[in-house]
Nucleic acid binder design. Structure first.
Lengths: 234, 234
DNA sequence: ACCTGAACACCGTTCAAGT
DNA sequence: ACCTGAACACCGTTCAAGT
């Protein structure tokens, strides 16, 4: 007949559910976000959530939009390359704050409205920077998930990597994977000497990003078009 | 006291389990590969699988290695760029044959021996092509999962996309996402006119790959080093 | 000693029973 | 009419009971 005190004081809403879900994922990883655990965190029965969100897919989409909304708006008065670079690095910051986000976005099959809006804005930056519609289209594909700050590494090194343990592993694999060991040994050496960037995630991300952006700028200057060239990037 | 006829005729083995699991995933998607369904497909009780594979993680690792083993060996007598390009396109072919593979690889946290061997071989190709150890290291990061043929698109377009339906969607979103609609409309137009590549996955993949490889070749020629430059890719 | 069926601890979601 | 607890159909894996 009457709602419980807890519910009246703090009524459920899509916003509160989403906020709690994001906090839960930030703290305990995405696996700790189940409809059951989320309901428990909110002090309600699991089925109560279904009054505010249709299903778990909608919950995940909402969580993505929370992260995407943390991306800074585009800066004004900058050349296209600087502006795009800044925005992508901002997206990367947002993504790094929520370690679960990239995995969740990858698992989705259709983009959320916030992601579409972000992509639309990014396309606008490219077009107003002087890129043709044709080039812009291919550039969006070439940047791909990197637009949202994805590092696109094959294996993200697990957080708990003891340097001494890693060095031992490198020595052990030098027989089986000689080339890999050679590169890994060099990175170790660099880190010890503090001479240059050994294996800094941020450096690697910017290295790849700049490689692409510089190549794209060259195509823009050359008025490259997919219609007029046999090769993609001569 | 005696094994069943089925089991005696076709005894379980890690190889047979893996082969069946890959076939099952190829046919019905990765979700149809559960220990229970896999056992059913093999005509055994679920627990029988655990005699040959430790757990589901080991099964997934084994499935990955099956796909990776389908990648062609490196071609001989080619310059590094052509050789690397060919090999990555071969990896992409293997990956496209098994639509579940990229998702499964992404979900793993540690690389399998076959993946390590492939990466080791790829590093060897770069080093013997004249790239420094330093540059090779950053190049491996920059290529990232693209080395295995990942397209790194933000959203892989679902297989069932009706062109007419897509055109309607583009017109509908032109108000909310004007820039996106502009690019999408251009792609539609191109496809109709058969003038150039509208949105061919293979073209987009090669476009991005060549953008990176050409940029890398330029760095090699310039003897670029992460120690001697402030900017990653000047 | 060995194999295996039942059981455990989960999951997202449905549905009918109770107020 | 509405809310919700039990139930359904799964999942990977454990474990003890039976042969």
């Amino acid at each position: 007949m009457e709602q419980t005190e807890g519910a009246r004081r703090n009524p459920l809403s899509p916003g509160r559910i989403l906020h709690t879900a994001v906090a839960l994922a930030d703290e305990g990883g995405i696996d700790s976000v189940s409809m059951r655990k989320l309901a428990q965190e909110l002090g309600v029965v699991p089925m109560a959530l279904y009054k505010h969100i249709a299903n778990k897919d909608e919950l995940l989409d909402g969580m993505i939009d929370v992260v995407v909304s943390e991306i800074d708006p585009p800066g004004a008065g900058l050349d296209w390359k600087t502006a795009v670079r800044q925005r992508i690095l901002s997206a990367r910051r947002a993504l790094l704050c929520h370690t679960w986000a990239s995995r969740v976005i990858e698992s989705r099959t259709t983009p959320t409205p916030a992601v579409l809006a972000y992509m639309d804005s990014m396309i606008g930056m490219l077009l107003s920077g002087g890129l043709s519609v044709d080039l812009t289209h291919h550039v969006m594909h070439a940047l791909g998930s990197r637009i949202l700050g994805f590092s696109q590494e094959l294996f993200t090194p697990s957080a708990s990597v003891d340097p001494r343990e890693a060095a031992t592993a490198v020595r052990a694999m030098s027989g089986t994977y000689p080339h890999l060991a050679k590169v890994a040994a060099r990175v170790d050496h660099d880190e010890g000497a503090v001479v240059g960037p050994g294996c800094d995630d941020q450096f690697e991300f910017e290295f790849a990003l700049d490689l692409l952006l510089d190549g794209i700028e060259a195509l823009r200057v050359r008025r490259w078009s997919s219609h007029s060239s046999q090769q993609a990037a001569p």
